[in-house]
Design a protein around this nucleic acid. Sequence first.
DNA 1: ACACCTTCGTTCGAATTTGAACAATAGGAG
DNA 2: CTCCTATTGTTCAAATTCGAACGAAGGTGT
Lengths: 171, 171
Amino acid sequence: MPSTSSAPSAPPSAASSREPRWLDEEEMAAWRSFVTASNLLNRRLERQLKEESGLSHTQYEILVHLSAAPAGSLRMTELADRLVTSKSGLTYQVTQLEKMGLVGRRSCPSDVRGVFAELTEQGDEMLREAAPGHVALVRELLIDVLTREQLAVLADGLGQVSARLRLDDAL
Amino acid sequence: MPSTSSAPSAPPSAASSREPRWLDEEEMAAWRSFVTASNLLNRRLERQLKEESGLSHTQYEILVHLSAAPAGSLRMTELADRLVTSKSGLTYQVTQLEKMGLVGRRSCPSDVRGVFAELTEQGDEMLREAAPGHVALVRELLIDVLTREQLAVLADGLGQVSARLRLDDAL
DNA sequence: ACACCTTCGTTCGAATTTGAACAATAGGAG
DNA sequence: CTCCTATTGTTCAAATTCGAACGAAGGTGT
């Protein structure tokens, strides 16, 4: 009964190169809690955002990233990278947000192919309206549950993990 | 420009109860790295599993949870809870896995309504076949990137986060 | 100027996901 | 036993997701 988990009936002897290094109890606990926390958190945030603002978490994140960017606008590809989604997925969501009047599209002056997604005034308002509740929940469910040290470790460790993944993807 | 983030143009004075407690730089870093790492990781694992075994991450996780359960079987609702998905989503995926011959359905003796999802012999084989590559990648991208201490903190902190979320959901 | 390889954003179809509605049953209070 | 409420798994329509294929440009080397 292998899984991501600890050695099932793996030979307790020296690891043969055929048998992978399974995860020990602690490693397994870390991985499971990461996956579970991630799923549970997403679910909760999704529900809350939808209820309180009519936005999906994805849509909210798009607004956030645009808001954080200079001039409230970003190239589609760049935005997709930051959000960690597919380009086609972004195209879809930006279209949705456009219909809602929260985001607009502008063509890029220096590159005919380029498209800027741009936060509209309404989009900015929406974000200001949705943010407090969202932040409060993130705080309640994650941030305030952890100690300062735990947060530091999280930021640091997962920061490295992300960096590594970004590098790999770039290949 | 609010987000999940640090105080935008919030009054540097004492926080009024209207203005939420925004996230400071460190908290923000922790939250962003968590979200980003989670997305990047999922993307990677999804791709790899699909390529090497033709399974989605969700499907793989179903097999894992069944394999870990006594008799290799679990009630649908219980399984959905452990996986953190919707019941309807699970119904769909179990049907898919059933078509592939990796999972079977058995009715529950003590409850007519109940349905057990059960790992088949083929499902077990598939898991044994897919696990090594999956574990190796999880190790390469997450586990081995972190120190023993970081892993412990992760397991501990996110364990608490999950526990808290489970409790809330139960309400 | 000309090929050639990349990059850009969109479109397309297929797969997945979700919540709400449902029918059937379980379980408890009276 | 009987009524009432909670639970179980499925079905349904709608929304979202992805990768592959595209057409259109950019950029480079010759």
